[in-house]
């Protein structure tokens, strides 16, 4: 029983981690919270519904389509909602935050309009396939979700630490001016970051669709808030922190539902985060002194 819950928790947590990575990348480079990330994630999930249910195409096509659509949404977010506000004199530092909130509401309304309110079933050919080891039931879909998440996280870590563009992203995240005098076109890196983060949100959308078999226009908000909580828990802008934080939240939620009162599922997860932050204010992986931009 416990083992089964642990598997459920890890599955959920790995999805949370992917969502949180999108938040943390954008925060690292731009220093802002992208409140539209949850809605971009939700759009990814709906693209999955369209591709698998309406068009009847296989699931890998859903991933491809979701990545393309959410990457385009990310590009438009950066181009029209964030870039015009950047580097202008007299623009409040809260302006980009408000701007992303605006985009998030727009996307939610748009999805109501396009897909209608209420739940949409997410079809997937292997949703019911499972096997039993002893008394434990494991669904194939859980393994698929976990493997995709881990591969994605490993690929991202490798990309950030070993490739030229990945290093440029880290340099930009650490200090925009320093990166630019080393020859990095920081505007390009910022666009790349937002596009990549959004595409990861899209992938997470499909994963959630697969995990819960259900998608609705409101799912973006709660996922967005959880993603935000996770990066605070893990340390703002910290990649490892987002991964660990996601797993912690996923496990905490699942265990609370299994052994406690499921009605308090979300509340208790957030309470746990508050408690952890009281002990470690900078987050699990955060540095004690935040290095602000000069």
């Amino acid at each position: 029983m416990l083992l089964e819950q642990l598997i459920n928790g890890i599955t959920l947590g790995s999805i949370y981690a992917i969502v949180a990575l999108g938040f943390t990348l954008v925060f690292g480079v731009l220093g802002i919270i992208n409140m539209a990330h949850g809605e971009i994630f939700m759009f990814g999930a709906f693209v999955g519904v369209m591709v698998t249910s309406t068009l009847g195409w296989p699931i890998w096509m859903a991933f491809l389509a979701a990545i393309i659509v959410t990457a385009i949404l990310g590009y438009m977010l950066e181009r029209f909602a964030l870039r015009p506000l950047r580097g202008k004199k007299g623009v409040s530092h809260l302006a980009p935050l408000i701007s992303t909130i605006g985009v998030s509401i727009l996307l939610e309304n748009l999805s109501h309009h396009l897909f209608g309110a209420g739940n949409h079933p997410f079809k997937n050919a292997f949703a019911e396939i499972h096997f039993t080891i002893g008394s434990i039931t494991i669904y194939v879909v859980q393994i698929v979700i976990f493997v995709i998440s881990v591969v994605l996280m490993m690929a991202l870590s490798y990309w950030l630490s070993k490739t030229r563009a990945g290093k440029a992203l880290r340099a930009t995240a650490e200090n925009l001016d320093t990166a630019s005098i080393l020859g990095v076109n920081t505007r390009q890196i910022i666009t790349l970051t937002v596009v990549m983060a959004s595409a990861m949100g899209g992938i997470a959308g499909i994963l959630v669709g697969m995990a819960f078999n259900s998608v609705n226009p409101q799912m973006g908000l709660s996922m967005g808030l959880k993603g935000l909580a996770i990066i605070i828990l893990g340390g703002m802008g910290n990649v490892k922190g987002a991964m660990a934080g996601g797993l912690i939240l996923g496990l905490a939620e699942t265990l609370i539902v299994a052994y406690g009162d499921s009605g308090y599922r979300d509340a208790i997860a957030f309470l746990a985060i508050i408690v952890i932050l009281l002990i470690r204010p900078q987050g699990l992986f955060g540095q004690k002194t935040s290095e602000g931009r000069p």
Partner: peptide
């Protein structure tokens, strides 16, 4: 303006970006 979160080697790599 050293990139303090990157290694010495990575800093040098960034020089030749």
């Amino acid at each position: 303006a050293i990139l303090s979160g990157m290694t010495v080697m990575e800093n040098l790599d960034m020089g030749a970006y």
